[in-house]
Write a protein that binds this DNA or RNA. Structure first.
Lengths: 136, 136
DNA sequence: ATTCGTAATCGTACTTATTCTGATTTGCCA
DNA sequence: TGGCAAATCAGAATAAGTACGATTACGAAT
């Protein structure tokens, strides 16, 4: 997903354009890594010194609902990154130091033998954790 | 892992025997599901009405370190269940309603094509989420 | 059995992430 | 350009988890 695609999606869905929304997406688009709400707020403080964290949290969940961002829960806090649409559905290797990610080619759901039939499957999570070169 | 194995492990590692420790493990051993710290405290209030949550949290992390319990982070809180040692390393289908689990036969790490070489892998998480019969 | 050191627990205060609320501001459409 | 709903603000509230000083109790040594 690109910045422009995300802004277009917001417009299509009837959400208003605000500079803060653009900047949140811009920040996420700039880095191939998961960021926490705090990380994002910090980066925004320069342009929006009076930013309220309510704004960040609210927009982050909006973006997740719209599929602009993907969310994961790591080390007790929510982390966010721009949805990668380039390679279809896939998973990530995540650096536990800095949140940096790389893409894994396949999804285990296609190769897992059988899911018990007494569960209605609603989702799945597959993440590989590690330390990237810079962090080790 | 059984209750007795867990208690033996505690003894071997030089931890003291306490009724609270036994009860935490007993509670987890009784259910094939992930429980939150709060769930566990609630179940203990009957026998230990003055229980401090510090005790529960501290013991839960001790047990995770010792491999007696496995932990996952779900819906903003830590969830715990007795480590299943019967089938070796494996993963779970988890009911998002009640935490109930069933076992998945294989681990995706064995079938995932290639992990990028610029990451030192430290761990992974594979969970399938769904709704069990009772919760749907 | 009694003593004693240390680990475990208690009670409570604190931290941190996140959500809520009511008042104010601001996009955007007519 | 006026008005309304959406967005933001500021700060209070919630909730999970951690820290800490004081007390209790396990279990080893006597």
């Amino acid at each position: 997903m690109t910045l422009d695609e995300a802004l277009q999606l917001l417009k299509d869905k009837g959400f208003k354009y605000t500079g803060k929304r653009e900047e949140i997406i811009r920040i996420c688009a700039k880095e191939k890594r998961y960021l926490s709400a705090k990380d994002i707020m910090e980066r925004m403080k320069e342009n929006y010194p009076t930013l309220s964290f309510d704004t960040v949290y609210r927009n982050l969940s909006t973006f997740v609902e719209l599929g602009i961002l993907e969310e994961t829960e790591l080390e007790g806090e929510g982390k966010y990154r721009l949805t990668c649409t380039t390679h279809g559905h896939h998973h990530h290797v995540i650096c536990t130091g800095c949140g940096k990610t790389t893409t894994l080619a396949s999804c285990p759901m296609t190769v897992i033998p059988q899911i018990p039939t007494d569960f209605t499957v609603t989702g799945h999570k597959f993440e590989v954790y590690g330390t990237c070169k810079e962090c080790s």
